[in-house]
Design a protein around this nucleic acid. Structure first.
Lengths: 354, 354
DNA sequence: TTGTACGCGTTATCAC
DNA sequence: GTGATAACGCGTACAA
């Protein structure tokens, strides 16, 4: 930016004998110029090799067209795919994204937010958990959260309760003798809690034998493996000979559970049914494709940005900002049946498309 | 930014009876003020609820502290992890990242680059392939590419040749009767080509029986499955009874290959050895952990940003920008031996940590 | 140690 | 349809 004097509107103006204003209009309201003059300016821009400077435009008109994003991590496919879909909305809405990875440390994320505010972002999308929605609401800019506590701000979430209900009822339909749910500790304010609740509600309602395991799952294969191994042993003991339907927190853990069973029995025994959550690639890539509840990530991402854009547009109109009530959008998940609930195809066959 | 008159240096200046300059100095060179006066200003900032505006600062001093990134996709773990590590360098270098997903369409990526230039990014990291390094070099800002054609710009790449060599020699050490390499078509200017080359060189050098399959791999499980299935059949026919060492393009495909074999034989037969590339999560999560060549993504990311930062710092010093020669950094990959080459542990055991 | 005056590159407001 | 002029908020010689 510093180097060798950039070409500015002034230069173009001098060269064409128009005023800076007219050059500006060429960009923002070209129809107000004669075609002839448009051509003259266009040629001059070419000739002087003009490069537009949106930083100056921001300072003048106050519109950065920046959206800030804070994602907890990109290790989980869920988050990277969500980010992917969010970034893809550039084509539709034109907003640029400043992205931070918040590792769930409150002070660090707070710094990120301050930095984003200093760059005058027009809106903020939060997927990390460490800052409360109360605090986010105080930022005085539109905020949309995805799949997290959202009392005081707008949000887009998967219908976790329905997802949990679908998963549980699928297991029930297969006439399992006992239903198992394995999950990590979730606060009741987090949408994912709905999965646990739905499992409990369904089982209670239908008077089905069931058990819930709440365990802090590890953040990698081996620790999760070590947590799941004793659970399997417990299941073997307590429910020997019974048909066990297992609904587990996510596909990564579902796959580990599957591996434990296959390494023990050579295949997935008939008395085990498994369903995960998220429709991550691993659920498709596992040796036995895993049934799962698929979140509609593209829809969620689009809804989130679109909600944000609406709120940002509102801001531009009315001066006295009214404290809009938060809007909460719920996206329906999709049940995906694969071999861990529908029975294995004989091995050696082609996989069914999915 | 528009709403209700932001508090500016002027306001602070009036309130404290200092000049704007002094307020500016409070932020950029606080030591030049007396402690007393620092306190006065600090209090005023508090009282008037001042929010800094970096957009104005950019316009004044020309330093955006923006780095642009274009990633081909976030579906592959390799890219999302790379982005993760790149974004994490904010803590060390303080640069903010504007991120675009380029879907390998030349015109679209060109537009992204124009947009980034308009926001006066100070440097650019490119991981997508559609724009030539020749064109990137013409941008007149520091550019670093990762794992792609890089003739005219600086870059950071994995030592693919060494990776291929390591993989092939591991298979050779296990005394395979025939070595197989499966890969998709790679241009010779792309670093990944080194893997194919290393495989061929090693086999020729050591006079080993070998075969290379070049196939356009699918972008999802089922298409890759359909491409790999006939290859397996061909291997069965041509090399029946022989010990086959297979080095395959990446872990996702290695897993599919593994699944094909396991679904056929119930386990991985002794006469098959498999090694993939990338150390993706799937290589660890597969039913039989897959040997692989691990790229040091954290190192690559750090080197890339650090290289860029150096070049950006140079820019700030010397006015007449000299055309620096591109710097190409090579990062050594790491051989990770798991069960697909070292023999399976009896199933039912705990997995070994990795 | 502190202040004055101007520049950064664009847009907004009037006026013609 | 076009132009002059004043913002936008901060940095920086240079002066005091």
């Amino acid at each position: 930016m510093r180097n060798n004097k950039n070409v500015t509107f002034s230069d173009i103006a001098k060269y064409t004998h128009f005023s800076k204003t007219t050059i500006s209009r060429y960009f923002n309201n070209p129809d107000s110029l004669t075609l002839e003059n448009q051509q003259i300016i266009s040629d001059a821009l070419e000739k002087l090799n003009y490069k537009e400077n949106k930083v100056a435009r921001i300072l003048a008109n106050g519109k950065t067209e920046f959206i800030g994003i804070i994602v907890p991590d990109l290790y989980h496919h869920y988050y990277s795919e969500m980010l992917n879909q969010i970034l893809a909305t550039y084509e539709e809405f034109g907003y640029k994204f400043l992205v931070f990875i918040g590792d769930e440390q409150e002070e660090i994320e707070r710094r990120y937010i301050q930095e984003l505010m200093a760059y005058k972002i027009e809106g903020l999308i939060i997927m990390s958990h460490s800052i409360s929605s109360r605090e986010l609401a105080d930022l005085q800019i539109p905020v949309v959260t995805i799949e997290r506590e959202d009392q005081y701000v707008s949000s887009v979430n998967t219908d976790n309760y329905m997802g949990g209900y679908q998963a549980t009822s699928l297991l029930a339909r297969h006439k399992c003798d006992v239903l198992i749910h394995i999950n990590s500790l979730a606060s009741e304010s987090v949408p994912a809690y709905g999965r646990i609740q739905a499992f409990r509600d369904f089982c209670t309602e239908k008077k089905l034998k069931h058990q819930v395991f709440i365990r802090e799952m590890g953040r990698n294969y081996d620790t999760s493996y070590r947590i799941l191994l004793p659970i399997v042993e417990e299941l073997e003991q307590n429910y020997h000979g019974m048909k066990k339907g297992i609904f587990i927190s996510n596909d990564t853990d579902a796959n580990i559970l599957l591996n434990i069973l296959i390494r023990k029995y050579g295949t997935l025994p008939d008395d085990y049914l498994i369903i995960g959550f998220d429709n991550s690639p691993i659920s498709r890539e596992a040796i036995i494709p895993i049934s799962t509840i698929g979140q509609q990530i593209d829809t969620i991402a689009h809804e989130a940005v679109s909600l944000l854009v609406n709120q940002m547009n509102e801001r531009r109109k009315r001066r006295p900002v009214l404290t809009d009530k938060p809007i909460h959008k719920i996206i329906t998940p999709i049940l995906i049946r694969r071999e861990t609930t529908e029975g294995c195809q004989p091995w050696g066959e082609e996989p069914n498309a999915n």
